[in-house]
Design a protein around this nucleic acid. Structure first.
Length: 249
DNA sequence: ATAGTCACCTGAGCGC
DNA sequence: TGCGCTCAGGTGACTA
């Protein structure tokens, strides 16, 4: 039961939105869609995103707040579900009724670890598209969950050059890519995410060590498979890494 | 409709 | 030691 809340800084990616209607309401379910956490109450759903630096922790009621602890959800048990987000790229918003109706959720693509995601999904979406395959892979309207780091990693595993026009890639190659996406994400989840710089997982521990990455952030270093120097380019305003030898397609 | 760019924000890392 | 600059990420908004 949500007995109350405290918003110290409402200025996240969008203004923090917790309606009075939720006071005293019981949590019906906790779920997830793409990178959005969904906390369902009878009147509607709180939609929480951690951006890239956010974390949620359960702390004691009198635990002093620290820097960047922006939102507290006060639970009936006396515990507090506390959102910390240094970069403030996250959000806490609300959708009455059906959560999927929210503008942030309604046009999202398929889940990468679900059954609907396949090479066929990508091939279909890529039809006639000239955009770089990496950008297609990161387009949340097609498939969700593939961020900048894992996009480079998956393309490496599939042997596909990031800048190739999406529409020119074969179904066969897309099947390899879909499989690579599943492998990369499943492994990253198992390892607790990727740690770069100051980013830590919710336990405050570093996750998937950067030294396990094949290409991301390794510009100028030797490919772990063939020794060729890893190259970097910019696609969609994001740094992109690949091995010129292992990625020929 | 599609493709490309910009913006948001903070802390780390760098050169001086 | 301290300052100022650049960069990174997720993803919606905006411009051609």
């Amino acid at each position: 039961m949500l007995s109350g809340w405290q918003v110290r800084n409402p200025k996240l990616r969008w203004p923090v939105e917790i309606p009075e209607a939720l006071r005293g309401q019981t949590v019906l379910s906790v779920g997830r869609r793409a990178k959005y956490l969904l906390i369902e109450f009878p009147p509607g759903t709180l939609i929480i995103h951690l951006g890239m630096s956010g974390s949620l922790r359960v702390v004691g009621a009198d635990d002093p707040h620290r820097k960047h602890d922006h939102v507290d959800l006060l639970l009936e048990s006396g515990k507090v579900l506390r959102l910390n987000d240094p970069r403030r790229f996250g959000c806490v918003v609300y959708q009455p009724g059906e959560a999927d109706a929210h503008r942030l959720l309604h046009s999202l693509g398929v889940e990468p670890l679900g059954n609907e995601f396949s090479g066929q999904t990508l091939k279909q979406a890529a039809k006639g598209r000239r955009v770089a395959v990496k950008n297609l892979l990161m387009d949340g309207r097609i498939v969700v969950g593939v961020g900048n780091i894992y996009a480079s990693e998956a393309l490496f595993l599939a042997g596909i050059r990031p800048a190739i026009a999406a529409g020119r890639i074969s179904l066969r190659a897309y099947e390899d890519l879909a499989q690579a996406v599943r492998e990369v994400l499943a492994y990253a989840v198992q390892r607790g995410g990727t740690t770069l710089r100051d980013f830590l997982n919710p336990d405050g521990q570093p996750g998937y060590f950067a030294q396990e990455l094949y290409v991301y952030g390794r510009s100028g270093e030797p490919c772990r498979k063939c020794g060729t120097t890893i190259k970097s380019i910019v696609l969609g305003g994001r740094s992109t890494f690949y091995c010129p030898t292992c990625q020929k397609a």
